[in-house]
Write a protein that binds this DNA or RNA. Structure first.
Lengths: 335, 335
DNA sequence: GCAGGTTACGTCAACGTTGACGTTGCCTGA
DNA sequence: TCAGGCAACGTCAACGTTGACGTAACCTGC
């Protein structure tokens, strides 16, 4: 392959270049860059000057190769169409920047194989840690990775391993609040739209709902999307027309449910009350406004980064019990 | 600092480990890993076996250090609360994965200093390229970076440099469609809510609107958010009560405008028509449904990655004219 | 006046990989 | 029969940085 590049390849400056310019050894420049100490103020000044003059930037690959740290973390989400995840990502990035970290964001579309592929690649990139909403069936794989020394934070799932920290929203309490609220407004028969692709052992909303509603609980599992909620509701209202209150896995699902219910001729909230979960921005905007369980998404992100730092290298502490963040019931017009 | 780690440090396998196990030189293993050829099938089989057995993964830092490629790109957006950007990000990631690239996502909050900081950091990480919606005043800085050899794609702005490619939606046509549509439904006085923090030379929606409406055009600049739209509308309807049609910078702004207008006692669309821009998912859900100019966000992302590959190393071609993607008018109930 | 310490450096090797180039051994054709 | 070529390796250095260690000069206290 012929190289047709005709402008000067803009050689990046290295420690050596800076050192040569100042007349010291690269090691001394390195010391200045990393503020290790062991240099005079005069030297420091001259080095700093040369650095700005040459536009020197440390090569993080070389540094990472030897220190085994890259100041980089991965944040892995099942999807990005649901505004919930970008908002958590916002929190993750903010907290990362505060700690001098960069964030890789990746989307799995709920596919464990994709998750695996992404994590493998991230490991090759020598990330310092990963924060993720695990896909179903990922537990063993995650333990493998942890075994290889990758610090991780899993959100809304529990994996028992010394270098995996767990972070959760208090969904159990959220579901209680939702059901209690629906009951208190006189609803007699409740249905729930659960998430088809939740990891089986972490169907916490569904489990709590069932425990509150008993054996006859009406639960349909659907995709955690607008369409999933729509379709599930059509079926639910057809099979059990007596249902007059729905708790949905998340707000997108709930909004789909509301639209489906109205198409089926139900008035909201008169004939059917709907409560969602997350409190995405959209929920306050739809009509009628969607009642929901609010999760503090920004905080979820920042806490995840904090936790990750705590399971990271240098900290021998075993991560404590899963950290649980509180939730809040927001009542709007849909219930 | 004392090391209290008590489980075996999970030494990652290297080329040397694999080589030792198989009884060949690391160079041969490298050849197999990279499918360079120059090895027998028997050797390949034994190497592959050892690789899976040891769980060997190439160290991308070491590889990048020598090849100067990391198969990594940065995608930099002004914010992530506006669903528009995550959806573009989705496209970017999908296209990236197809090409074997990883994506760094970063959010600037519209601050040029943050953008600069982020890009600098990315460069230190030796990314292969960057895709970004530039912040105002970033042009010179971007040229600096391009000069240092970073391939870039800027979206919805134009920067003239051989290693910067430009990608745009046909917003001019979009604005024409919107204004034409509002006029054709009988609106007499139009207002526009523009984006306060657009780079001055790329206020394309605003410029087109002004060129269509003439000198007396009613334009207010606001933050490109729900609240920005809300506030701008309050002011606009107070100062110019005769306005009966609004074109907003984006859908979030438009939805804010609708809410503000209704609070001010206007019926939509009877008293005031509103048209947005983007067609985010929310726009079909709000009530009344928001008419808007649809931008194919996924495609924007994938085209950006394609373009980036074309300005990347090895391709001597100067990027052609800015690539322009078509837009589409979606009429709903708000107009 | 000198042991001992401190400050401000320098030297060297190593991190894991690949580019450039060298070296076998076998096959081929005239 | 042997020059020439090719397949299948191996060797060595380099990428840019930092950890470990060495050292010269100077200071300190007694």
């Amino acid at each position: 392959m012929t190289r047709k590049r005709n402008f000067t390849p803009p050689q990046k400056a290295t420690l050596h270049d800076v050192a040569a310019k100042v007349g010291v050894s690269p090691r001394t420049v390195s010391r200045v860059v990393n503020k290790e100490g062991g240099f005079s103020e005069a030297t420091e000044a001259r080095v700093m000057e040369a650095i700005t003059e040459l536009g020197y930037r440390p090569n993080l690959l070389a540094r990472g190769l030897i220190t085994n740290r890259t100041n980089t973390l991965a944040f892995i989400v099942p999807n990005i169409d649901d505004p919930f995840f970008p908002e958590v990502a916002q929190g993750v990035q903010r907290a990362s920047l505060n700690r001098g970290l960069s964030m890789f964001l990746a989307v799995t579309n709920g596919d464990p194989a994709v998750e695996r592929e992404l994590l493998d690649r991230m490991i090759s990139q020598a990330i310092d840690g990963a924060i993720l909403f695990p896909t179903p069936g990922a537990r063993e794989h995650l333990k493998d990775l942890a075994e290889q020394g990758l610090p991780m934070v899993v959100i809304d799932d529990v994996v028992d391993h010394p270098s995996i920290a767990c972070l959760r929203s208090d969904l159990e309490h959220g579901v209680e609040l939702a059901v209690e609220h629906l009951r208190s407004t006189g609803r007699r028969t409740l249905g729930m739209i659960a998430n088809r692709s939740s990891p089986p052992r972490s169907r916490r909303r569904e489990r709590t709902f069932r425990s509150l509603e008993g054996e006859a609980a009406h639960v349909i599992r659907a995709d955690a999307t607008y369409d999933g909620g729509h379709r599930a509701t059509v079926q639910m209202l057809r099979d059990h027309p007596e249902i007059d209150g729905i708790f949905a896995y998340n707000d997108l699902t709930a909004i789909g449910a509301m639209d489906a219910a109205r198409s089926a001729g139900r008035r909201i909230p008169e004939d059917l009350a709907v409560v969602g979960c997350d409190d995405i921005a959209m929920s306050a905007r739809v009509s009628p406004g969607l009642s929901t369980i609010r999760i503090d998404r920004e905080r979820l992100g920042t806490e995840a980064v904090d936790l990750l730092a705590r399971v990271g290298p240098g900290e021998g502490e075993r991560p404590a019990e899963p950290l649980t963040l509180p939730v809040e019931l927001i009542v709007r017009q849909s219930s």
